[in-house]
Each structure stands twice: as C-alpha cells, then as structure tokens.
Design a protein around this nucleic acid. Sequence first.
DNA 1: TCGTGTAATTGTACAAATGACACTATCTAC
DNA 2: GTAGATAGTGTCATTTGTACAATTACACGA
Lengths: 223, 223
Amino acid sequence: MNPYQSPILMVDSVVMQLANDALQVLLIKRANQPFQGMYALPGGYIVAGETTVSSHERILRSKAGIEKQLLRLVEQLYTFDTVAGDPRGHGVSVTYMGLGLDIIPTFGGETQQPEFFAVNALPQLAYDHAEIIAYAHERLKSKVNYTNAVYALLPVYFTLTQLQTAYEAILCRPLDKRNFRKKFLSLDLIHETNEYQRDGAHRPARLFCFNSARLERSPRSFD
Amino acid sequence: MNPYQSPILMVDSVVMQLANDALQVLLIKRANQPFQGMYALPGGYIVAGETTVSSHERILRSKAGIEKQLLRLVEQLYTFDTVAGDPRGHGVSVTYMGLGLDIIPTFGGETQQPEFFAVNALPQLAYDHAEIIAYAHERLKSKVNYTNAVYALLPVYFTLTQLQTAYEAILCRPLDKRNFRKKFLSLDLIHETNEYQRDGAHRPARLFCFNSARLERSPRSFD
DNA sequence: TCGTGTAATTGTACAAATGACACTATCTAC
DNA sequence: GTAGATAGTGTCATTTGTACAATTACACGA
C-alpha cells in the first residue's frame, strides 16, 4: 500500500472563536501518555483513504463533537516536521485553522474534555502546540487586515461595535472608534441593514451584514 | 513501521531565479509515465527517516544537481491533497519554494533535463503544477512587499536599477524610478557602498547591499 | 414626564504617504 | 569634444492616516 515507508502523517487543528471579548482556542486534555493530563490541540493520525481535509473533519468530530458545518472558515496553516526527538516520533503534521461562532464542544465517546481558552491565557501545552497557536494567531491577525475573514467569527447581523470589538480581540490592541468605522466602511465589505439591535437603556445600534460569506480579499488593506 | 497506512507523502519544489529580466522557474522533463515527455516541477517521494526539508534537498540534488547552499531562501508553500483521481494516486504533497541566483542545473545520473523557463512563458505542465507555480508566484509577489526577500534573487552587491528590475520582473508591472528609489530607501533594508559598477559608455551606478541576508520583515510595506 | 445613565453616531484639522512627472550628471567611444 | 547611454535627483497635488469630543436615541426610575 505504501512502498515508500512515508513518515507518519498527522493533523492538528486550531479552532478559534470569540467569547467574552476575547479570542479563544479549543484545547483538549490529554488522556494518555505522552503529556498525560496536559492540554493540547485536537489532532490525530491520517488514515488510509483520507485527505488532510477529511481527516481534519473526522478528528474534530470525534475529539470534540464539532461538525464541520460549524466552522465557517477553514484554512490550512503550515506543515510541521516532527523529528525523531519529538515524543510523537518522526512524522509530519499538517495544521489547519478553523473559525466559528458559538461552538460548544461536546464530551463523551472519544472526546477528551474539550474546552476553549483565551489565547492570551493559555495553560501549559503539550508538544510545540503553543507555537502552532501563536502561528495561527499571527496568520489571523494578518488575514483580517486584507480580507473579510472576521465574518466567520461574527453572527450574520452584527453592530459596528461588535465588529470593532472583534478586531480589537484579534489584534490585541484598542482601535479608535471613528477611524475604525470610517476605514472599514470604505472597504465595501459590509452593508447596512434597516434592523437595529436593542440592548438596554441606550440608543439602539444599527445592524450590518457582510456582502459575502466567503473569504474575499479587500482591494485595500485595513491596517 | 507505519501502522496508520498514511497516504503517500511527496515533496514538490518551485525553484526560481531571475534571468534576462524575467522570473524563471525550474522544470524537468518527465522521463516516465504518467505525463511522459511533459514538463513538471522537480518532486519525489519522502522516504523513511526524512523530514520534508531534507527530502526537498535530496530531490533537488538528485533531479537537478542543485546543492542546498545554492538556495538562499527556502520557504514552505502549501500542502496539497492529491486525491484518488490524480494520476499519482492518493497522497499528500508538501511544496517548497527556493530562491537563488545563477543556478545552473546539471544533467546526468537521475536528472531529467532540468531547465529554467520564464514564469510568463511556461510549457504545458504535468499534474496541477501550473497552479502550484501560480501560487508560488503570488506568494513571492506578496512577500517582496513586506520583507527583504529579493536579497535571495540578487547578487550581494547590486545597483538600484537591478533592484528595480527584479521587482518589476516579480510584480509583472513597470515601476516609477524615482518613486521606487525613494520608497525603497526609506525602508532601511539596504545600505549604500562606496563601490560603483562600470558597465558601458555611461555614468557608473552605485552598488548597494542588503543589511541582512536573512528574511526580515520591513516595518512598513513596500507597495 | 422629566432627568439620568448608557452606548451609538458623526466630522474636522493636521501629518504622512502616495503618485505623477522631466531634467541634469557622468561616463565611454568615436 | 561631441554623441549616446544610463544614473541620479525634487516638487507638487492627492490620498490616506491619525488624533480628538460633542450630540443622539433609547430605557429606567424618580
């Protein structure tokens, strides 16, 4: 079947969403050695007949109960060599990033206590997963500057304040409200609706909507 | 050795350099089926004990006589799934881009007529290699806008005209001489020397030098 | 109903970057 | 010393970035 004795192929997944005004990443608690009891990215081995994409989907479903429809944007990140010194042994790990909204990981079966953690407050991680998460975060920071990628982290209808809060959580820095709105509206990535969100004892906020629910490049960069 | 029956792992390589004011890519003529006689990127299977990086080096050495020292910048591009309908069968191909200068591929042994072609005048290509080259070209276009990556395509000492010609070849569009110089010099990626290049019957051109021969991000983007 | 609290919405003035554009300088060869 | 060829350089108009504060609309409670 595999006359070339290829190194073992793995997939690791960086699933992210926004909650409590923070960017969060999905981790599982490892049930087995190595790194038993430590947190790690969901990941697993690619089996015969699978593509990396279908393997990624299977692993998220089996380890965290996440169906692929919940991820509104999936992007391949990088492929890491795991050398002989690595506890996983010699192999190759293809990493994917998945973005979604209101994802609730489920337990039971093969799942291993999946849970979201703020990227700025991670527990100690197994393997080199802290670096993989940092890489994913950098990619996302860069991506939101020249694409509409945030659509995958927000509800279909959202306020400009929600949008700005999302950018601030991703970029890890405060943004000026007036400049943010002026700039973002000039990108032609979103359009206003005639709906308003009534929150509490204050002026209601107009709801906006992305023009496209697929990844689009904006002609000019945001930042 | 591999209890998971992983898909077969391959490496494909996009080696590029500048010649005749054009960006060129290294292709080989396939000796065997499938796609016999057609051109393709140098590539091959990863064998046991190899990392993707070392496999990439071995493949370039064995298929085109290119030693790894000749590539002054190597960057992983993307990992492609090759599905069952693909003539290669079901597998995974990790692609790398290598940039160099004055690379002369050599024949003999396992080599298969390696030759450089201008990216804007490619022959028909095997597999999906045309898309991989387009992807590499896009990556390079983007990379030269916010890094010093061109250093890998130019000699250590170069004139501003050479630098501009390199950018024009990569970006596939003409640039204004005065604006290019003003902008590029403001990036603090290069410094002038006191040497001049004497070419022909005209004013000699001052030679410049990159501050770093490693990939550096410039604080502001170029374009 | 009136006042208060809360968040939404909006514009201007200055600084910096971009983009279009043409002439002078320096060398070689004849 | 003149012609031919490439190197080198500055200004102005436009666009973009950035700092900054007052007004609007609603809910709630007195």
